[in-house]
Each structure stands twice: as C-alpha cells, then as structure tokens.
Design a protein around this nucleic acid. Structure first.
Lengths: 117, 117
DNA sequence: TTGACATATTCCTATATGGGAATGTAATGT
DNA sequence: ACATTACATTCCCATATAGGAATATGTCAA
C-alpha cells in the first residue's frame, strides 16, 4: 500500500506546508486564486491543485464573484487536529514540571546545572 | 516531486493514523514493541517501521531494558502542531458566535429555524 | 556456543503524490 | 461571436511510501 491520499482527512491535507500557508492566509479573509498566487509566490496550477485538496477535505470553501472564485478557510475543519494534539497537553506540562523540579533540586544541592547529563 | 518524506516533520509523521494511535498509547506509559503489537494488533515489522519514523522526527524516544526496547512519546514534539492549529481557534469561535447569533435572531423574529438556507 | 526471544531492516510492489508544461473551461466586455 | 481574463484539469515523471514476506541483528540464558 502507498500512503493514504492527501484528501483522506485534514491530517493528510495539512502535511503539505504550502497548504498550511494557504489556510493561514485564507482564514483572515477570503481571496481569489490570483491573490494567493501573488502573495505566496506559487504557480497558479499549483495553487489550484492545493485548493482542490483542501476543498475535498472541507478545509476551504469557494464562492463565485464575477470571474473570480473567492476561497476562504473553514476553521472548524481544523478543530479535530487541535483536539487531538490537545490530548497531549497535560503530558508536556508534566515534562516541563519535571525539568523545572530537576533544575531546582540541583540548585538546592548547591551545584550548577548538570551539563553532562 | 513526490510528497515530502514522512520523516520531514511531525505533520507528515502523524498523517498516518496508526502512528497517531502509537503516540496516544505511548504517551501514557512507555512500552516494549511487543506490547504495541499486541495492543494495536499490527504486525511487528509494521510497528518497528512506524516507530522508526516517529523516532526520526523526535516524536518518540527509546531506552533499552534487557532484551526489550521501551518506547515512549515525547509530548513536547507535538506542541508545534498544537500551536499551529491554535492560531485558528479564534476563527472557529467567531464562526460559532455567528451561528448562535443567527439562530437567536431568527427566534426573536418569531419564525423557526430556517431549514432551507 | 547454542537456542530462543525481541526487534530491526531489506526487498518487493501497487499507489499516490507535487511540480512543470500544456491545455481545457467558464465568465466578462465589446 | 471573439478576445481576454481567471481558474481548473490533464499528462508526464521522479520519488516516497505502507504492507507483506523474508531475513538480519541483538540480547539473554543455560
């Protein structure tokens, strides 16, 4: 089997950095394809293809406006990723606490930070 | 060009659902490969290969324990993803507010929810 | 050393890319 | 109708999978 399609879900779609840039750009305000091309300095077909992927997974929506197509990010489609990553939050907090406690313990012991370990 | 390697960054690594399962499992407590195989019901070589990818991007760490190798998630390596998704939080909040306001406006107008639009 | 257990790597293959180039399609103005 | 603007799609190709099967490496025990 090969890798899952980029259109499988948000996780696969945003693995591509350009698509993340597009999402960040379009969440602020909707824009026509030409502007995305200009701002991000990508080729037009490339942008259209990325937008197609993002559309397929529901991360962006389009609406016509004369000859233009205005794309905008659908922020809600990013929530599942946010929530998944959030399940690890308490653990990296613990990690920080451990590091902090360790540093304080060392200082209390009178020695400087252990640069070797 | 093909897709970026899965070992490019955390975004690419966690695009694979099995790797997400492995991370969720190993963040609670470290485990030997055999247990991951048993709990997630995957083939051993498959698990080893996924662990290799996760290791390459710093999402897990290993330590030897006799004949076993104990893997554990490095939660801090997930923070960049959490932070990226968090930049969209205010926008989906706005989205919810708009939906809520719209619903309340309709109710105040005396009509039920607009099922057509 | 030998054997058994635990994990890692290699080889193979079908599939899905993303970029570049070229072309197709849709909407507007005259 | 026709030229123009704005996007979208298609074709080609190098590359990177993920899974399955087989094999290699590593570690302990007797």
């Amino acid at each position: 089997m090969a890798r899952a399609a980029t259109t499988t879900d948000a996780f696969n779609a945003v693995a591509e950095p350009r698509r993340r840039e597009i999402l960040s750009l379009l969440v602020v305000q909707e824009r026509p394809v030409g502007e995305i091309v200009a701002v991000l300095r990508l080729d037009q077909p490339s942008v259209s293809k990325h937008l197609r992927v993002l559309r397929d997974v529901g991360l962006v929506r389009v609406r016509r406006k004369g000859r233009h197509k205005l794309y905008r990010t659908v922020p809600d489609a990013i929530r599942p990723m946010h929530e998944w990553t959030a399940t690890f939050e308490r653990y990296w907090r613990h990690q920080l606490h451990r590091v902090k406690e360790r540093a304080e313990a060392l200082e209390a012991a009178g020695s400087g930070p252990d640069l070797k370990a």
